[in-house]
C-alpha cells in the first residue's frame, strides 16, 4: 500500500526542489518519488509525491496506524501541507487547539482553543 499526495504551491519548481531539504519525513525520505508540473494559468507548481512504504505489522498494523493517524498516508499528507505552509507563508501554521500545527495524530485529541500557560 503506497501513499500518495498532491498540492499546488505558488512557487517555482526550482525553488520547491531546492528547498525540499526543509520538508519533514516522510516527504524528505530517500526513495520518495516526486514529480513537478507547471500549474495552469500561472498558479505556481503542481507537486505530486508517492511513497512506496507501508505501515509495519501487516494488514492489522496498517489499519491501526490509519486509525491513530500514524500511517504513511497521513504522515505524507501532513508533511506536504506543512511544506506548502513553510514555502508560502514562511512557517508551519499553528493554532491554540493544534499548537504543533497540522498533525493528523493530534487532530484526534485537540487542546482547547485557549492560550497555553507555557509551551506545550
Amino acid at each position: 500500500m503506497s501513499a500518495y499526495a498532491a498540492a499546488t504551491i505558488t512557487r517555482s519548481q526550482d525553488e520547491i526542489a531546492a528547498r525540499l531539504a526543509e520538508a519533514e519525513p516522510p516527504l524528505s525520505d530517500e526513495g520518495m518519488e516526486i514529480s513537478y508540473a507547471t500549474a495552469p494559468g500561472g498558479r505556481g507548481t503542481e507537486v505530486r509525491v508517492r511513497l512506496a512504504k507501508s505501515a509495519p505489522g501487516g494488514a492489522v498494523g496498517q489499519k491501526l496506524a490509519a486509525v491513530i493517524g500514524t500511517d504513511p498516508q497521513r504522515r505524507l499528507d501532513d508533511a506536504l501541507r506543512r511544506f506548502k505552509q513553510v514555502l508560502e507563508t514562511g512557517a508551519v501554521v499553528s493554532s491554540e487547539g493544534s499548537p504543533g500545527g497540522t498533525d493528523a495524530k493530534q487532530q484526534r485529541s485537540q487542546e482547547p482553543a485557549a492560550p497555553a500557560p507555557t509551551s506545550r
Binding site: 501541507r81 499553528s94 498533525d103 485537540q110 482553543a113
Partner: peptide
C-alpha cells in the same frame, strides 16, 4: 491546521477562523 478534518466532512477545507470550532482550526 485542521484542514484534514474539514476535508473529511466537506471534501475541501475552508480557512482557519477565530473562535469557531476545531474544524476551522482551533483558534482562540
Amino acid at each position: 491546521p485542521n484542514a484534514g478534518m474539514a476535508e473529511k466532512l466537506w471534501g475541501h477545507a475552508s480557512a482557519g477562523m477565530f473562535g469557531y470550532s476545531h474544524l476551522t482550526g482551533g483558534f482562540a
